[in-house]
Amino acid sequence: MDDLRIVERDVDAKETKISAKNVQVYYGDNHAIKDVNVEIADKTVTAFIGPSGCGKSTFLRCINRMNDTIDVCRVEGDIAIDGEDIYDRKVDPVQLRAKVGMVFQKPNPFPKSIYDNIAYGPRIHGLAKNKADLDNIVEQSLRRGAIWDEVKDRLHEPGTGLSGGQQQRLCIARAVATEPEVLLMDEPCSALDPIATAQVEELIDELRQNYSVVIVTHSMQQAARVSQKTAFFHLGYLVEYGETGTIFTNPEDPRTESYITGRIG
């Protein structure tokens, strides 16, 4: 298999979805993210790569303000989605998170039925007018999560009974159910086996039709396979950001090259 196969790039025409300017993040006294400026395009898969502890997950969690739930965490600078500052006082982080879905490293289905896992978000945000509407949303989300065929006959069994890969696709379907505009994925395949990983990667590529997807990954092959744009983080700095093909074949910064060729990390 050609691991560094580059998927076709057609990102030039896309408009900017998320734009970050001079973002600084502090955990207590620790300066975790330093001066990050990045423009993430709509309907594109953007990969964040970099060694452990480089701040890529931290930056990802700034985009839906999940860092707000950590007491010692402080974010400075501007992050805007569609030109709107998400750290503005007027913005309710809870509403923001409905718009910016998130998929976590470890599959975390709720201890509820598969149906209720998906219906959780729509119920909270009042997206369904009636039972039939909700059924429809659940089906659509499970189809988008590429798991409908596997679970359609057991919607009322617990979501925790699925296999790891199925659970992760269930979590993606759950995130999709609230109709977000951006989908953040924090190492979504790190707990999965290669077959489940392939299924999720295929799914990510399909999700690009409707969403702006940002994925944090430790696997450079994965970044190369699924993303159109790649950002390389190192020690809290955004070192290099550009077309995935360019980053992997012709990086500008020597640190990026060292990381990609396996000399640092």
Binding site: N64, M66, T69, V94, Q95, L96, R97, A98, K99, G101, M102, F104, K106, N108, P109, F110, P111, Y120, G121, I124, H125, C171, R174, A175, T178
Partner: peptide, 12 residues
Amino acid sequence: SMRDGSLGIGAT
């Protein structure tokens, strides 16, 4: 991770 999952969907 349960709480994160729920908060990440936009639950209070």
